[in-house]
Design a protein around this nucleic acid. Sequence first.
DNA 1: TTATTTAATTCGCACCCCGTTAAAAATACC
DNA 2: GGTATTTTTAACGGGGTGCGAATTAAATAA
Lengths: 392, 392
Amino acid sequence: MRAINRFNVLDTIRRAGSIARIEISDRTQLSTTTVSAITASLLDDGLILARTEGDLREAAARGRPRVMLELNPDAARVVGAKIAANRMVFVVTDFRGEVLSTLTLALRVDRQPIGVIADLIEDGVRRCVVDANLALDEIDSVCLGLPGVVEHRTGHVRTSPIFRETGVDFAKEMSERLGVTTIVESDAHAITLAHHWFGKARDLDDMVLVSLEQTLGLGVLHGGQLFRGAGGLSHNLGDLVLGMGPQGIIRLASLAGESAILGDQPSGRFAEAIRLGRGMAHAKTLIDAEDNTLISAAIRAGEACGMALANIVTLFAPPRVILVGSSLALGQPFLDSLREAYSLAIPPSIRGVTELVFDQSTDETWAQGAAVVALRELYESPWGTTGPAPAL
Amino acid sequence: MRAINRFNVLDTIRRAGSIARIEISDRTQLSTTTVSAITASLLDDGLILARTEGDLREAAARGRPRVMLELNPDAARVVGAKIAANRMVFVVTDFRGEVLSTLTLALRVDRQPIGVIADLIEDGVRRCVVDANLALDEIDSVCLGLPGVVEHRTGHVRTSPIFRETGVDFAKEMSERLGVTTIVESDAHAITLAHHWFGKARDLDDMVLVSLEQTLGLGVLHGGQLFRGAGGLSHNLGDLVLGMGPQGIIRLASLAGESAILGDQPSGRFAEAIRLGRGMAHAKTLIDAEDNTLISAAIRAGEACGMALANIVTLFAPPRVILVGSSLALGQPFLDSLREAYSLAIPPSIRGVTELVFDQSTDETWAQGAAVVALRELYESPWGTTGPAPAL
DNA sequence: TTATTTAATTCGCACCCCGTTAAAAATACC
DNA sequence: GGTATTTTTAACGGGGTGCGAATTAAATAA
């Protein structure tokens, strides 16, 4: 019970950024007595800091000025990473989730053996930590966000476009290499939490996020918690079936995946751009130059996404859906056809329930989301004292 | 906190049927002390009963014999109902969810004004209660399971095939008529809970149920709780989009809904059978007689369902999916094509995660499920005392 | 009959939260 | 400077919760 209240208080402080005890007791419905006790213990553990200035009540602040409380940035450091097929982005953040250093590695890792990928990630983590003027043993936790189907609880990667192998115990592997607790999570879940903490869902505890990257992913926030499916699996939208064609099953990925839009051939005109991770940006340039093949591919992809989106909204009926990912960079043809297909496909009975939001976050935001996954677990840890100081 | 533990203990007793305190403390991880206190209060409130006999440990029972605890059937009575377009089924159950009386009314209610439907339901409830040798004021709660999109929390029916109107405050309406707390819930949710309590998901706290009736519904059980979407909406599978045809959007309902299979025309050859609620049974007879039109309709419907099912499994990855509903009565052509389409459409990455189970429950089971919805709310109510007797 | 075994209860302890009250702290107003 | 105002801390009593140790209860085995 204390643990729950502690978490709530800590989370209230995080959301507010800077807040007085009175406000906390107001928002959490806890008595000021209790809030005082909990904040005292949080101060004691060094998780929060008190600041005297900064009382921003309207002019007439008569009585004793409030003491503002805020997270102690130095209470913990974590590493978050977005691992994609053609690039890796690492960030080190402080306890608030604020980025301390960033590192982007533009290199193609898919189809590499797992040992090589692990090597590269290990290297990236270590370099990014050094860039933040830290040592690895000052890092409390690492979280890797990667595409594919990931079992969060066990760190088991069932399938991922970046691995040739299936069923990899990647969290274990990386924990051993780094000597730091390492969590593996789907990249879509990471960006979902990033939006919950910092982005376009700060005000909502229920929402759905659809990520349109090389892989098509889904994040569902339900009561402030990620909905992780029964077994803690992530959702792989690309596998959704959109219909039956002459060649058999038509999956969303085959219409709206990156390779479906840009073409898959290693000799294709995008091969070079893709290798450099600039595929979508390049495509945008061509679309602006009225390249008809690409425009029609973008339109097809938008239609497919719009229909899949309508199905997801039919199932979850969230107040807001956030769309993210590199495909958004395709611009008007894609977005317009998506919107049109969506509004055609959305059933009348839930029309108006859901608001559609597009967001083009940087890769850094995704990595930051991974850091948030790690931080959330730290927030819920019992930490130092849970009550009076332990007996000596 | 007590409330939570009380509910857990009560639910443990329900699941076991008959169980000793020690076992409860074993399963709930509560201390025997706490279990004793809670069971004492439950006994005090008359929610459970103690029975000395019935200690079924293996032969050598040395020490003090266990006192078995079980639900007190008389602690409460509820009415559950399944309201369909061509029939209504009511049950009265005791506190355990055991059926005390049943009433089936075969009558077509869709397209009737809402007042008429309410009249019929009111009548059915009253008659079924009388059949159980009870008076209405001995009923603690009523739950109506009906097809369509229902907001459970408010009892608001957004759309339903049995109402011409949209946005009906049906719970309020019926509560006032009956003078008994009345809950409105989607029929799919009702049958989901029925399977959780009594049927093919007794052993699981996570599963998905798909109901193939006139309307296509979905129930998702997550951690023993119904997943009700963000706003408490139910899920209407019929609105799922399966592709784009020459006539525009193709929805699941247009391929696999009852009217899609049997034909919609009032002058059709099924008109009479449908009116009597025997549509599917009649269809089965014709299929057995090798009626090719029907067989191909059944196959089409099966394919559509199989594909939609694969999408749902892709999203939720439950350990088990239960399929229920009148369409199952179509037999081999339908089931085979469903299974085939499903196994074709299910992505390889989660193959083997989910087990498919078919179940042809009677209408009574659906109504019983509605009763379970009502009972679960009673279980969570604070009831009489929450601790020592209230001060006089 | 006595010892043994197992189940259930009683009792005391620690904890947690709340409300009230009082006191201390830090400012603005007069 | 004194006074009013507001936030924060501290102290006390009351009620609740859960747990462990000791105790009682009820049966069987020797």
